[in-house]
């Protein structure tokens, strides 16, 4: 990877961090409502994996912590922010919200609120790809907690049985809200849980984007070439609460501080600085540019966009003319 790409990747992670931090502010100002789940600490996961896939071509699905997966899939950050603000210009026209970011044009097939719900959807995308005969793959990002749902086991079984081209990425951040993994799950190594389904699997550090990309490349190539499922577990940690309404009572300060030292942006930046790819001053300038973009382009777009019209409340419940269109 050349220096330009390295700097771009660092900028993408930094952008993700600043974007999410700005969401938290907007939430405090009540410009964003509902549940808001932010991504700081886990940036190397979505960005590293999708760097090795083909965003916009491959299909991506995830849970409710979905802003960055969408943005790395090529969804316009302005449309994501507008969605959080509940605006008509949002990528789901203000009907979805933070947990339901959609952009089929970018093959970003959604964020979903129910833990474990996207597993079968991802397999269904794999099934559709298989039927159409393309070279796309389906990529499903979920947490460690999701693996205790029946859909995990049911879907692994069927994805393997039917040779579906699905990459399952488990972002193991060691907690499902306030419950530590070992208090909820017998086998804490998630990648071992797919062995009975004869799915290839690996576990790696999710904080070092170079490590993530190295494993993601293997995983993506495997799924694309073998047309078989693959399960990649990324060991990671969220530096903020589960959502905006998290007491944090379940984790020690010490633990959080230890993981903060393994901040994916810090790790990558230090590496690039050491290699002479960029200087501290370059990084500060990059950070400023990112914040300027958010403040001067993204936030004003979301703020100034119109809300959906109340007259359109019932629009989109059904496809307009969708039951008769084919008859004409």
């Amino acid at each position: 990877m050349d220096a330009t790409d390295q700097k771009r990747l660092l900028r993408e992670m930094l952008f993700a961090r600043r974007f999410e931090e700005r969401c938290a502010e907007a939430y405090q100002e009540r410009q964003i409502g509902g549940f808001l789940h932010l991504y700081p600490g886990q940036e190397a996961c979505a960005i590293g994996v999708l760097e090795k896939a083909r965003p916009g071509h491959d299909y991506v699905v995830t849970g409710y912590r979905d802003h960055i997966h969408a943005i790395k899939s090529g969804v316009d950050p302005k449309a994501v922010m507008a969605e959080l603000f509940g605006k008509e210009t949002g990528c789901s026209k203000g009907r979805g919200g933070s947990m339901h970011i959609f952009d089929p044009d970018r093959h970003f097939m959604g964020g979903y609120a129910l833990v474990g719900g996207p597993f079968p959807l991802a397999a269904g995308f794999g099934k559709a790809i298989q039927m159409r005969g393309g070279d796309e793959i389906s990529i499903c990002f979920l947490g460690d907690g999701a693996n205790n749902q029946g859909t995990f086991h049911e879907t692994m079984n069927m994805a393997s049985l039917w040779d579906l081209p699905v990459l399952f990425v488990c972002e193991n951040n060691l907690y499902g809200i306030g419950t530590a993994i070992e208090r909820a799950t017998v086998e804490i190594n998630q990648y071992k849980r797919v062995a009975p389904y004869r799915i290839e699997a690996a576990q790696c550090d999710g904080q070092d984007i170079d490590v993530v990309m190295q494993h993601a490349e293997t995983a993506v190539n495997y799924v694309r070439e073998k047309r078989r499922p693959y399960f990649l577990e990324l060991m990671t940690y969220r530096l903020r609460g589960h959502s905006m309404s998290d007491s944090g009572a379940y984790r020690s300060k010490d633990e959080v501080e230890q993981w903060a030292r393994r901040d994916p942006i810090g790790i990558y930046k230090a590496r690039l600085v050491a290699a002479g790819v960029l200087s501290e001053a370059d990084f500060a300038a990059m950070d400023q540019a990112v914040q300027d973009e958010i403040e001067q382009e993204i936030i004003p777009f979301a703020e100034q966009s119109p809300e959906p019209a109340v007259e359109d409340l019932e629009r989109y419940v059904y496809v307009e003319g969708g039951c008769t269109a084919w008859q004409n």
Binding site: P120, K127, Q130, M131, R132, G150, E154, T155
Partner: peptide, 26 residues
Amino acid sequence: EKRVMDTPISENSYTGIGVGAAMLGC
């Protein structure tokens, strides 16, 4: 067998696979 699929006894997930496939035009 690709178009007439005998499924395992996993109602929620094979229904969901149907949903996912439908979302992509099947």
